[in-house]
Computed example of a mutant assay.
Amino acid sequence: MNPEQISAFIRQLYQSDDFIPLHAPTFNGNEKRYVSETIDSTFVSSVGQFVDQFEQAIEAFTGCAKAVATVNGTAALHTALYMAGVKQGDLVITQALTFVATCNALYHMGAEPVFCDISEKSLGLCPKSVDQFLSEQAALDAQGCYHKTTGKRIKAVVPMHTFGHPVELDELVTVCQKWQLTLVEDAAESLGSYYKGQHTGTFSDYSALSFNGNKVITTGGGGMVLCRSQDAGQKTKHVTTTAKVPHPYEFFHDEPGFNYRMPNLNAALGCAQMEVLPQFLQQKRELASRYADFFAGTPFRFVHEPDYARSNYWLNAIICPDQDSREQLLQETNAAGVMTRPVWQLMHRLPMFANALRGDLSYSEYIEARLVNLPSSPVTPHTD
């Protein structure tokens, strides 16, 4: 199988001779109507009915106790980490194979990432890799977990559900309990993904979703903090709304806060998208199934959901036989107007995280050299 055949198959799926993007938003519901209602109401900023409605829709869909809408996914993760007690100078274990936003959120709160390897099952943070790093380099005292060489506190573990495939959450929870660490899920890519029947982002006290333009549903720009209790949710909403104490006219803020509240305009878009989310998810599973069948028995290995999970298949991916075949596929498909992309460069290769502590990253490096993402827009594919 060659890149030309792969491009032809993708064009057949989407029945298009035009440029095929990696993941485009789909607007065929009430988006225009709700956005127009927002404009007519003049409540286009962070106060408006659609913000509350969008939060309630996410709560109902994911099963979290309270959802708090934010301006983007990075703001949601920053808030989740802040609420989880991560402070300046803390070390936070995460994966090197992730989008840079995971580490940017840590950087801007003065925390430092520690990189561990990913799992072959999920392409997300590997529990065994985390436990091995901690066993070799960490210890416990009365204040909790610390890094033996630097003396710095290890506060949290942040797995990212790569391409929407849930990580091994039971095992990660066990590791966190063993080492007295706080779990914070980066669920930015996993709306509609389930681990053993439970929605991702609901296994930790705080987690983060993203609604960027390329996600399963979009609000243009936007994110959401998922909270495991009503009290935590109310506190999170307060902090993301400049910590302003309610009053008819006085401006009193009782702690430092963030101006992270999602505007009503964005939430209107989100409410319309939530109405068709089940349809999007079904279409994406059909697309993933077609890809899996197409690549079966070829040198290209399709990335399936883990056997313990139901994935949203946000981005479909294949693992090429080697780096040369990956480069050839990327070059020829993109030249043919079919957008494909490599996985992100590993975080420790970026200048701002080059000196971060890390364990063995062998499988992360293997995947970095071979993985290619394929067009994954939630459109029902055709084969006739």
Results as ranks from 00 to 15, higher is better:
Pro351Asn: 09
Tyr249Val: 13
Phe27Thr: 11
Ala187Cys: 10
Gln282Lys: 14
Val35Pro: 01
Gln180Leu: 13
Asp254Gln: 14
Gln177Met: 11
Thr236Met: 04
Glu327Ala: 10
Thr162His: 10
Thr26Gly: 06
Pro3Trp: 03
Asp307Lys: 11
Gly223His: 02
Gly144Asp: 07
Ser129Tyr: 02
Glu189Val: 10
Gln49Trp: 07
Ser204His: 00
Pro248Tyr: 09
Glu368Ala: 07
Ala24Asp: 15
Ala335Ser: 12
Asp141Leu: 04
Thr236Gly: 02
Phe251Val: 14
Lys237Arg: 14
Leu329Gln: 01
Asn266Trp: 09
Thr98Pro: 03
Gln198Ala: 12
Tyr206Pro: 01
Met109Trp: 09
His165Ala: 10
Met352Leu: 13
Leu346Met: 13
Gly192Val: 05
Leu191Gln: 06
Ala208Asp: 07
Glu275Ser: 08
Cys126Glu: 11
Thr298Leu: 10
Phe302Ser: 07
Ala267Ser: 08
Val245Glu: 07
His247Thr: 06
Phe258Gln: 12
His238Ile: 01
Cys103Asn: 15
Pro113Arg: 02
Lys178Gln: 15
Ser7Gly: 12
Leu357Glu: 10
Phe258Arg: 11
Asp141Trp: 03
Leu269Asp: 00
Ala187Ile: 06
Ser135Gly: 12
Ala354Ile: 05
Ile217Ser: 05
Asn264Asp: 08
Gly192Trp: 03
Leu81Ala: 11
Ile39Ser: 08
Ala369Cys: 05
Thr162Lys: 09
Leu330Arg: 02
Asp293Met: 14
Lys87Ile: 04
Ser193Lys: 05
Gly197His: 06
Ala208Trp: 03
Thr202Pro: 01
Asp131Tyr: 02
Glu250Gln: 13
Leu140Arg: 07
Ser36Gly: 10
Ala60Gln: 15
Pro378Val: 07
Phe211Pro: 00
Lys244Ser: 12
Ala139Glu: 14
Gly164Pro: 02
Glu189His: 13
Phe61Ser: 04
Asn355Ile: 00
Leu91Lys: 03
Val86Asp: 06
Ile318Glu: 02
Gly222Phe: 03
Gly223Ser: 05
Leu361Trp: 02
Ala292Cys: 14
Asn373Ala: 11
Tyr195Asn: 00
Arg370Gly: 00
Pro278Gly: 08
Asn312Cys: 13
Gln95Cys: 13
Leu265Ser: 11
Glu59Ala: 05
Ala65Ser: 14
Ser46His: 11
